[in-house]
Every structure is written in C-alpha cells, then in structure tokens.
Computed example of a mutant assay.
Amino acid sequence: MPQTVLITGASGGIGRATAREFARRGDRIGLVARGRTGLEAAAREVRELGGQAVVVPADVADHTAVHDAAEEVERHFGPLDVWVNVAFTSVFAPFTEIRPEDFRRVTEVTYLGYVNGTREALARMLPRDRGTIVQVGSALGARSIPLQSAYCGAKHAVNGFTSSVRTELMHMKSNVHITVVQMPAVNTPQFSWVRSRLPKQPQPVAPIYQPEVAARAVLRAAERPRRKQYYVGASTVATILADKVAAGLLDRYLARTGYDSQQSGQDVPADRKDNLWEPLDGAGKAGPGHDYGAHGSFDDRSHARSPQTWLSQHPGLAWPSAGLLLTLTAAATARARRAALRRPGHR
C-alpha cells in the first residue's frame, strides 16, 4: 500500500536518489529543500516513476518552516508514515578558519534541522502510534576527520540525540521507530556547492559510492526500522571499528593523509559559489536555476553496489569475525585511497 513520505534535502544528492526509490513503490512524497529548481526536477522524476509528489521549499534550520512543510504535505497526502532527514550543509576548512556564523549555520542545518524534523514527525506519529523516522548519518558521526569539524560535530550530535529519543520511545512502548543509516563517502553535488576555504577543490575520500547505494539503504531502513543503525559501505564499517580498536593510530593516519585526500588536483575558481546561506538552484520566486541532480562529478570513481551493505541487511547470514572484517575492509579502503592519491594532478 502506498505510504506518505517526507524527505528533507530532496533537491539533490542522497535525498534526491531516495525520493526515486520511494517513488518506485508508488508512494506519496513530500519533497523539502531550499532550492525550487532541484525540487521541481525531483517531483518530475517521482511522477515518472509512478509516485506522487508535492514540492515544499523550506529551510530546515527554521523550525516554523519545518512545521509548515509538514502541514502542507499532510494536507496533500494525509498522515505521514515515514520521515527521512537528509538535509545538511558544511564548510571545508581548518577549524581556525571557519567564521563563527558559518559554524553556527552548519550546526543549525545539519544538526538542528534533524531535531526540527524529528520533532514534527513525532508530533504527528505519536498520537497515531505508528510511523518511522530515518536519520541519514555518516561514518564521520563516529570518527571525525580534519577539515570538517562543523559537519563532524553535527553528525556526532545527531547520533547522540537519536539514541536519546530512541530510548524514550522504548520507554513509552511506542510503535513509532527511529533508526540511523550511517553513510560512507558518496558521489553527491555537495563537493561542487559546499563552502570551502581550501586551496584545491574538495573531494570525497575514497572509496566513493553512488547515491543510489545510499538511497536503497534508506528505503530498507524505512521498511525494517527496528534496528538501531544500518551501515553502508565497507569503509564505514572499517572506519567505525578502527576507531574503537586503534583510535590513536587512526588519529595519526588522518593527520598525515586527511588534508590531501580531501582535495583534488584542481584549483578553486575565483568565482566559486556555495550554498551555505542560499541555495544555488533558486529558491521561492527567485527564478530558475541549475538542477544539480543526485550525482556529483565523481562517477568514474564511484561504486554502484556495496556487498557489505547487502550483508548488513541480512543479519541471519554468517558473518566473518569483526577482526577479519576490519582487516579486509581496511585493506580495501587503503588500496582505494592509494589509487586516488596516484591519480594525475593530485597534489
């Protein structure tokens, strides 16, 4: 039976790919983001795939706007069954070079945006005693890296906040569920529109996955939300396990490699724009803009599938030991990163 789904950050990247996955089930989807051009394009895709869509431009950092967005979606499609929090923003820079107002903005969108979304979802789901909230998390919410202090801090906060809410729902014996899908590096447009104070263009740290891999995991989590967390990509598992067993070594490794691995060999254009404060694809009545879509500029380096993700969704299968899994995934991650560093033009 079709469900009513609200997705924040639906104009691009993981949010955009996630909207397509729910559309294939014929769901009714509320698409929320700041940029109208990307939202309208996402709505067309949803309808072409057999779903229904309503476009609601809103800034998730504004709790009133999030409330109004939820009202609008329910007016169109009825009670919400699934709420997916995806929207985020970031700044690539050493912490000492991030302006206080920019750091606050990242926190308000990437952390408080999830808080605002969760609040509105629970306000509607708890009285009905049904519904699912999916938080799109990150391996960087468990293991921080250099040059992304604002984003890492926000993603850590999302994990802590979500765990607290989960235990409250358990205490209430509620049939409302909340789960987190921890993501690896994903080939999204964020590296084209994120604010950066680096000398070279920002890039994801290999191995990189296509947004469809992430979106399929979100759909799976929405269908089976009883698990606390889902992990996407071998690198996510390796990173989290390595932080638990060898945090000091990982600190030194990231201090040595974390700057270069997050920058390509391309200089940053003098006129480079970002979406920290305003969307790059037009908002409200600002007029037409560019549709960035779901994919970034790293298609030739991105994986379309993740065997580890499939295994994580089938816990009844025999798993290798944690030590063996860590060894295998860490080795694969190291090979991918070495290959990225050897690419022509990499500094």
Rank of each mutant, 00 (worst) to 15 (best):
R28K: 13
A87R: 01
Q203D: 04
R25N: 07
Q201P: 03
G117C: 09
D129M: 07
R130Q: 15
G50E: 04
Q148K: 12
Y111G: 01
R166K: 09
L31R: 06
L241S: 08
N175A: 14
S138P: 02
T188P: 01
V66F: 03
A65W: 00
N116K: 04
T179P: 04
V56M: 01
P79V: 12
T89Q: 11
G284I: 05
P225M: 02
G137S: 10
R335N: 10
R143L: 06
L280H: 09
R347A: 13
P320E: 08
V5W: 00
V205Y: 02
R130K: 14
L328T: 09
V5I: 13
T64W: 08
P189L: 02
R143T: 13
Q52S: 15
A33W: 03
P279A: 05
T37A: 09
R75S: 11
S164C: 10
A87L: 07
L140S: 05
R16A: 13
R301C: 09
R343T: 12
F88K: 05
A247V: 10
F191Q: 03
T118Q: 00
R227H: 11
T8H: 05
N85W: 06
R337G: 07
D274M: 11
A294W: 00
L324R: 12
D271N: 13
A41S: 14
Q229T: 13
L147N: 05
K228H: 13
